[in-house]
């Protein structure tokens, strides 16, 4: 090979590296871990009742043909508070929201629901993150859409806002 060409090789390699950096800067710095369970049947989980007077949540509850939202949340999670009014509104529009509370306890949950309202039809207290891991959920809040056949068709990561409302209702088939 030509010696001149060899001498330009480091230049080319470095230029390639710098282009990679430039591309890397446009990647989102906050890595969002998307669940691989989207498109798959809702995995088996059973989370017992979180508060007295309301049923827990389990896979079996999603097999009756009705699409539902599955909201992974926690009483210690600040953004979850902001999300409650929107979940209430979705409920008012005919959506059923099943809650799974992670790393939580009944006392704190009771206070949280009393202060912010309770949009949930059922709330499961997830023991040891089993349901969360089964769902492939990496944080709170996250909202899954489960269709009538018990399949996860969508995952929303972060707070549900006004902008997501129409899309979620359409997926649930309860457009008003």
């Amino acid at each position: 090979m030509n010696r001149k060409l060899v001498l330009w090789l480091p230049f080319a390699l470095m230029a390639a590296l710098l282009i990679a950096f430039l591309a890397g800067l446009s990647n989102s710095p906050e890595k969002v871990i998307v669940s691989q369970m989207v498109g798959q049947p809702l995995p088996e989980f059973a989370a017992g009742p979180a508060i007295t007077g309301q049923a827990g949540a389990a896979t079996a509850d999603f097999r009756d043909g009705k699409p539902r939202l599955l909201n992974v949340f926690a009483s210690w999670c600040v953004p979850c508070v902001a999300e409650i009014p929107m979940l209430m509104e979705l409920k008012a529009n005919g959506a059923e929201v099943v809650g799974v509370a992670v790393h939580d306890n009944s006392t704190d949950l009771g206070r949280f629901l009393a202060e912010n309202g309770n949009p949930y039809s059922r709330i499961g207290l997830d023991q040891g993150g089993r349901a969360q891991i089964a769902l492939g959920s990496a944080g709170v809040p996250e909202t899954f859409v489960v269709d009538g056949t018990g399949k996860i068709i969508y995952q929303h990561i972060g707070v549900v806002t006004e902008a997501d409302k129409a899309k979620l209702l359409a997926m649930l088939g309860v457009t008003k």
């Binding site: 010696r3 001149k4 001498l7 330009w8 480091p10 230049f11 230029a15 710098l18």
Partner: peptide
């Protein structure tokens, strides 16, 4: 870096 690498490529020969 690209400056130095270019200088290297030109001069090292």
């Amino acid at each position: 870096i690209t400056g130095a690498m270019a200088l290297f490529a030109i001069r090292a020969g």
